[in-house]
Design a binder for these strands. Structure first.
Lengths: 342, 342
DNA sequence: ATCGTCAACGCAAACGATTGCAATAAAAAT
DNA sequence: ATTTTTATTGCAATCGTTTGCGTTGACGAT
């Protein structure tokens, strides 16, 4: 049944020594004879001894495990972030325990609770779309509990935030459309309570303004779900209603952008000849669709690895949280493909 | 510093009772007066008491955590499976700890080791492309350690396997192409050491044979990496070399299929008029590319949830492993889109 | 007054590993 | 020969919780 994992006691019994001796021998403490060390290690090998991490955690109040709270796993950007997290964590000897909230605040809170009782060493979180009150986080922060927020970050005291430069990403994307000669540009925006959505919209607005193009509020529409269908329907409706046809679309995300392209085609508009389109996130499919979709690439892997490095430094006290007052901002890159070049 | 998580002892001290009493009161054991129970619960609430899962694990030799070993996270199918796993696990009170092997056998083994020392209650594994020897798994199985394999499953004694019906998925896809009038059909195959690749190829072969079409080995080519680029290059090369042009492509995966479509277009062939294409996995982008890509949909979420249910039943002894001798096979569904309909 | 019964609770060991503080014996110094 | 030093090891507490068993005192019955 039980895989009979050998314990320190088994080794001790086999050699007629105490468990303290075994423990010390295994870690090459001074004050243990070489002879004993040799024998202990030999038996440990023979019994295929593996230290019981649970017992260690209890003793040290450290679990060497970090908790990741993420809205959804089936998502190109988030899964890429996870990949970065996993990479750094495992190379530094930490486990990753994962919980997806499915954008539900209730699950977010309960995940935090169970992780806390599992003595997680720290959190990496990107909160849900439902989360508007951050008390459940600030309570932890106030106690000095290590948390790093990434991508979707809150504006609360002491939080350490890792984010991408959504503003400039959006600004560049919009400017690019303008420079290509599009000037009646739609913005398919994201959920209003996420700061990333706001930043992207701000980038869009500033780009227009700085290029002398007036902002038309009827061209800014919220795509709350960010699905292809939603993008399709909103675009279709918009193009039918507007007297003066738009000729550009800057979407908050690639999926909505893809939906928008389909809508344009179905309405008989050519992309990029009649309408230029740029998305956000650079999903894998961007280079596979027709026309290939220009997009703002977010450094997902980098974000995951950077956030994890910060968290582990925090946990291991190599980093004083108070020294970080500004968010860590990672650069985006505008990848120009066919959808936005006349 | 420490988030001062209250322990049972804190409650005990506050009420001048022993920790045993507190423990029992909290779990409504008989032999504790209602008065005491009330007070204990009150104080527990006040101190925001959360049982220490680590201590519990140590005591019970159970961690209520399952380990997931997966080749990569940034993958539509696998991330969908994870989603299913997470769903069931969390609803049944288990944590999920995740490790991606990046297709490396070494990492696969070391992940298993660290998870073992973390007293994981059981494993959910889809092994790496490098894994050809399964001794590190069978050793665990022999000890009765709960493991469920999914998607990429081994052929070893006592293993419980959850897989999709790759054979029929491939068979149907190929038959569909044939019925559409394509008859010189290429197969972009997967890595040869994975049984899923073999099954898909077998489905392809049988479909041809049963429809009276001879099998041409030069039309079966391994796409070991499954990238879009690889699919593009292999297809380009193939079409240039073959005297008698192929008119159909059944790809082992969608990404390669997408690459193949691009290659066809660049060579001046129309999809679906000149060449019909069907992929595998039904990635999100299938309905966003031009033409929309027909694909065999695998029930990823279902696979994750089913595998997890089995594992937890195994762990909780609601299920005797010996009663399961056949693999659990989940049905696929052929989604016909524009890439394969003339 | 004595005994048994029962409700209500505490003691202490256990899970596996670590670690400060002895303890022991042998070797060295006096 | 006696004391001091040094090398090597063991004891026991600790982390937080559970649980078998023992203890305590009140109460009714005799």
């Amino acid at each position: 049944m039980k895989i009979g994992q050998a314990t320190i006691k088994d080794i001790a019994r086999e050699l007629n020594v105490s468990s303290s001796t075994v423990s010390r021998a295994l870690k090459d403490y001074p004050g243990i004879s070489d002879e004993t060390k040799r024998k202990v290690k030999e038996v440990a090998e023979k019994l295929n001894y593996r230290p019981n991490a649970i017992a260690l955690s209890l003793r040290k109040s450290r679990s060497f495990t970090i908790g990741v709270i993420i809205p959804e796993v089936v998502h190109f950007f988030f899964s890429t972030v996870i990949s970065g997290i996993e990479e750094v964590a495992s190379s530094r000897g930490y486990n990753v325990i994962l919980s997806q909230t499915n954008e539900s605040l209730t699950r977010e809170k309960s995940s935090i609770d169970t992780m806390l009782s599992n003595q997680i060493d720290g959190f990496l979180v990107s909160f849900s779309k439902e989360t508007t009150d951050f008390e459940h986080f600030s309570r932890l922060l106030d106690h000095g509990y290590p948390i790093i927020f990434f991508d979707r970050v809150p504006n609360i005291p002491h939080s350490i935030n890792v984010m991408v430069d959504d503003y400039h990403g959006a600004y560049n994307a919009t400017s690019h459309l303008i420079s290509q000669g599009y000037n009646r540009i739609v913005h398919l925006a994201g959920p209003k309570n996420l700061s990333i959505s706001k930043e992207r919209e701000r980038g869009y607005r500033d780009a227009l303004t700085n290029h002398g193009i007036p902002i038309d509020p009827t061209l800014i529409i919220e795509c709350a779900y960010g699905t292809s269908d939603e993008g399709f329907k909103i675009t279709e409706k918009l193009f039918k209603e507007q007297k003066e046809k738009p000729d550009g679309i800057f979407a908050n995300n690639d999926i909505a952008a893809a939906g928008a392209i389909l809508a344009c085609k179905s309405l008989g508009y050519s992309v990029p000849d009649d309408v230029g389109v740029v998305g956000f996130s650079n999903w894998q499919f961007c280079s596979m669709i027709e026309p290939t979709l220009s997009s703002v690439s977010q450094p997902g892997f980098k974000m995951g690895s950077k956030a994890t490095e910060l968290l582990l430094d925090l946990i291991e006290k190599k980093l004083d949280p108070d020294t970080i007052t500004e968010p860590i901002v990672l650069e985006t890159e505008l990848l120009i493909r066919n959808s936005s070049v006349k």
